[in-house]
Amino acid sequence: MKTPVKIIGINGSPKGEKSQTRRLVLAVLEGARAAGADVMFVDICALKIRYCTACATCYAKGECVHDDDMPALYEKLLDADGIVLGSPVYINSVTAQLKTMLDRMADSVHCLHFTGKYGCAVSTAGGAMADETADYMNSAMRMLGATTVGTVGVNFMGNPDLIVPAGKKAKDLGRKLAEAIRTEWKDPAQQAYYADRKARMKQLVLANKDVWTHEFDHWKAMGWI
């Protein structure tokens, strides 16, 4: 029997159960579950995640100086096959809570820890920039090595009923995410991006191999250098 696809959804809204973004993340997970995936939902605003201080300890040792909820969340992300990121638009971008999580993953950017994983993103806005914010979240996942399969963004503009068609699109996106994982879908444009990014990360790690020892050891263990 094949191991079920594992998908984790991260909600970056601080509004709890009142969050429209939460509804979209859950809709993606519902669609993925209907396609046979095992799903997990995380409200990141309920976690304690401290700011990155750019100390570079993770580059050298593969661990962070902070004692908080990020390591446990990160293990869940690494265990997942697919990742759904969701955030409302706060001044043309993601919430501080979600951005803090992303900033704590600098080591993973260098190590491309999400290689082989898949992702998608959803965003809501009272006015504008929902699509752009969802695109930003997908770009962050591609920096980590993941292949992204799409977005759903909704700008309400005073019309809360728009969550209904957006929810349907989110469910479809969840099914698409699960299928992409199952079939190991490849996108030629993203594959070219990854090849270029991997080459640049390799040069960066090699240039700093004497101080970024953890990352250099990771690249050797992966057979990339």
Rank of each mutant, 00 (worst) to 15 (best):
K117P: 04
T148H: 03
A146K: 01
T124A: 06
D131M: 07
G127S: 13
A146Q: 04
F156V: 05
A134C: 00
V149L: 00
D187I: 06
A178Q: 04
Y193R: 12
S139A: 14
K186I: 10
V154T: 05
Y136E: 11
Y118G: 01
P160W: 02
S123Q: 05
K117H: 02
V205S: 12
A199K: 10
M137G: 03
H113D: 14
A140K: 10
A134H: 00
A146P: 01
E179Y: 06
T147F: 05
D161T: 10
N138I: 08
T148A: 01
A178R: 04
D135Y: 13
P188E: 12
A170F: 04
C120Y: 00
Q203N: 13
T183E: 08
H113G: 11
V122C: 06
D131N: 11
V164G: 12
G158H: 08
D172A: 14
S123K: 00
G153V: 01
D131S: 11
V205K: 12
G153M: 01
V205Q: 11
G150Y: 00
L112C: 08
W185K: 15
G153E: 05
L112H: 06
T147Q: 06
D161Y: 14
S139G: 13
P165R: 05
F114L: 01
T183V: 09
E184P: 13
M157N: 15
G150D: 02
R142W: 06
N138D: 15
D196R: 13
P188G: 10
L144R: 04
L162S: 12
A166R: 03
A170C: 04
A199V: 04
A130E: 07
C120N: 02
K169Q: 15
R182N: 09
D187S: 09
T115G: 06
M143Y: 14
V154N: 05
A180N: 04
A140M: 14
A121H: 04
T133P: 02
G145Y: 04
A140D: 11
G153L: 00
K171E: 12
F114C: 03
G174S: 04
L112Y: 07
A192P: 09
T148R: 03
K198I: 12
Q190W: 07
M137A: 07
L173E: 02
K168H: 13
Y118I: 01
S123N: 02
D196Q: 15
T115E: 09
K176F: 08
T151I: 07
R182S: 09
G126R: 05
A199N: 11
D196T: 11
L112K: 05
I181T: 00
D135Q: 14
D131V: 07
D187T: 07
M201G: 08
Q191S: 15
G167K: 03
P165N: 11
V152H: 05
K117V: 02
G127T: 14
K168C: 12
A192K: 09
G126N: 08
M141Y: 00
W185E: 15
R175H: 09
D196K: 14
A180T: 01
L173I: 01
P160G: 10
P188V: 08
I181Y: 06
K117G: 01
A178N: 03
E179V: 14
K168T: 14
T124M: 01
M143D: 14
G167V: 09
K198Y: 11
T148Q: 03
